[in-house]
Design a protein around this nucleic acid. Structure first.
Lengths: 368, 368
DNA sequence: TGATCCACAT
DNA sequence: ATGTGGATCA
């Protein structure tokens, strides 16, 4: 039995607005850790991963894991019936046939209850390789939105290049070419030093020993090794060789994610990491309404500035269509993080009070 | 000869916005009491009744009754030529061939005059049975709008149930079911105690002797007998039997309104009631411009809260399409009143400074 | 079917 | 006061 009480229905509404165009149906996997969702878009080029942590709810109870097969269109419809500041209670029985959403006005004189039929969805749990990223860019979500939107008016794809100069987004179009260079902001670097570590589970530093280095499907921590920053700038210019020379060629290098059967025994990234980070956000469940906290109550790092960390010069090309789509999540957080590694899917991550949403996008091959 | 001087053209504009989708052509019946309109929608399922009281005009003169056969589309066009705060003067000669509308800017430095051709419209005066409603719900118009709009995204029809618990709006749809429960707000109950009695002619209490109890077409006051409130809560659960047991089966129980020939000698509801209530709104014709009084100058009961009065558990099902349509009248008043009785058309009533607009909607039979 | 305008919600 | 969504008009 699931019962999850969310302070603001707006969180869910925004979440669905962010992903409903990418995915039509998906399983919300509910367990004691919280609620997570993973799905690929129809073309199997992009992957979304959402996590709502148990601690982010005002109340959370899930006796045993339940997959809730949801049609996101239907859920969106139902969520439209909620006012942004309604308290939203999700309930489901263990059989997972129906999801009940209850919206309570803050003054309790209105209670709305919606029952949504669920469906069975084949969900091979998706294997997200845990990656040793070579560059991490932390920037205002609105700026990212603007950049990809602007460039999408010129061309189909964008080349993202991180060098010691900064991060450059470049697109070539028929009528014009454009590129935007964002330089590191010193203040931002300081501000974001621990972003994604205190408030979420990015795990960017330390614990190399957690890596299962011998696996053919190498699973490593999502991190940029800090001690390497600024050491290998000299490699800039060519993309990719370094990574392959390392013998680290990912098995999803072909640009698509592989479905992995449920019984493979490998945990999803988020699950395994959640367990180690349970200590965080001890106060999240105290549920301060925080009126007007439009975006989220995650970070006290308010805004502005670009932080860049890198161990490697990276240079990758991606479809702008997807990035534009991803950037809809800027309603959930003021800040976005891009994690890059040559020849490996880009990770676009938005962290908000109750969890995070992450997108993985395979690079275009041949830099076309 | 008719000459009616209305303080704000906006009132008429909003009125037409509210009904023009429901009805194409209708007679504005002008007499010494004011201007009224009654019409059924094309499907003969819904009925609109508008009353602009003589006292609600800055100046009103109508020597003898004139029916003005108006194409509402044309009138809407003409009204679009008025600014919201223009003073609007309606004029017509006794032959009723043309309606003249004059718009005067408040500072009289602009005067626009429009003449609109009128038409002959067969108008069997409609028989609106005057009903002893079993429940009255008074609530913010915006909330009603929101509820029917939300539910209309799920299903075709809504079940409205008034019990001692409150009023519940429930709809079943293909992908989801939803229901909203509004609880009585104590403050609202107090606030609305006399709503519709001082300011209009709802006649909610007393005067049982006005009822012509023996008639086959029983005409009763539109009221909920206050003394019965909370006495018959025990009847909840089944809908309708009580009413039928009373021998009060309405002749429109089949869900449609009957046109009644003009010579039947029976008065319309509003006319007969207006006469008895002439004392009200003595100051309305003083015409304080009341700048910015967007909605209406009717009530000083500003907003919020739900008031429920009932003598009977009621449970009826209606087409959401119509309710959504009705709710357009929320531009005319902040407050809406729902009057219900089992197996009898719902009355949705908006009262504003110059009069009221009422919609009658036959319930769906068989609760489907 | 798309664009513009109005209203509601935040 | 601004932004989003719905409704209306071209």
């Amino acid at each position: 039995m699931l019962e999850a009480r969310l302070n603001e229905a707006a969180t869910l509404k925004r979440l669905l607005d962010a992903i409903k165009e990418l995915v039509q149906d998906a399983n919300f996997e509910c367990n004691e850790e919280g609620i997570s969702l993973q799905a690929m878009d129809n073309s199997h080029v992009a992957l979304v991963s959402v996590k709502l942590e148990a601690g982010g709810f005002r109340k959370y109870r899930c006796d045993r894991p339940i997959p809730l097969g949801v049609n996101l269109g239907s859920l969106t419809k139902v969520l439209k019936c909620a006012k942004d500041d309604d308290i939203c209670v999700l309930k489901a029985t263990d059989d997972g046939d129906v999801l009940s959403l209850t919206y309570e006005a803050r003054n309790a004189d209105r209670i709305a209850e919606y029952d949504m039929k669920l469906m069975d969805i084949d969900s091979d749990t998706l294997g997200i390789p845990d990656t040793d990223y070579e560059a991490r860019v932390t920037m205002p979500a609105a700026e990212f939105t603007r950049i990809v939107r602007d460039l999408s008016n010129l061309g189909e794809s964008v080349r993202i290049e991180v060098s010691k100069e900064g991060v450059r987004f470049a697109s070539d179009g028929e009528s014009a070419n454009g590129n935007i260079l964002l330089k590191q902001t010193e203040a931002a670097r300081e501000r974001y030093r621990n972003y994604g570590e205190e408030d979420e589970d990015e795990d960017v530093e330390m614990k190399d020993e957690d890596d299962e280095e011998g696996g053919s499907k190498k699973k490593t921590r999502s991190k940029v090794k800090k001690e390497k920053v600024k050491k290998e700038d000299g490699d800039e210019g060519e993309e990719g060789e370094e990574a392959e020379a390392n013998g680290e060629a990912e098995d999803n290098e072909d640009g698509e994610f592989k479905a992995k059967s449920d019984d493979e025994g490998e945990e999803e990234v988020s699950d395994s990491e959640e367990k180690k980070k349970k200590r965080k956000r001890p106060s999240a469940s105290n549920g301060k309404p925080k009126k007007k906290a439009k975006k989220s109550d995650d970070d006290d790092l308010p805004a502005g500035g670009v932080s860049i960390e890198m161990t490697q010069h990276v240079n990758l090309t991606f479809s702008l269509k997807y990035l534009v789509n991803f950037s809809k999540s800027s309603t959930l957080s003021d800040t976005v993080q891009l994690m890059l590694k040559n020849d490996v899917p880009l990770l676009v991550s938005y962290t908000f009070g109750q969890g995070h949403i992450r997108y993985y996008l395979a690079p275009k091959i041949g830099d076309d």
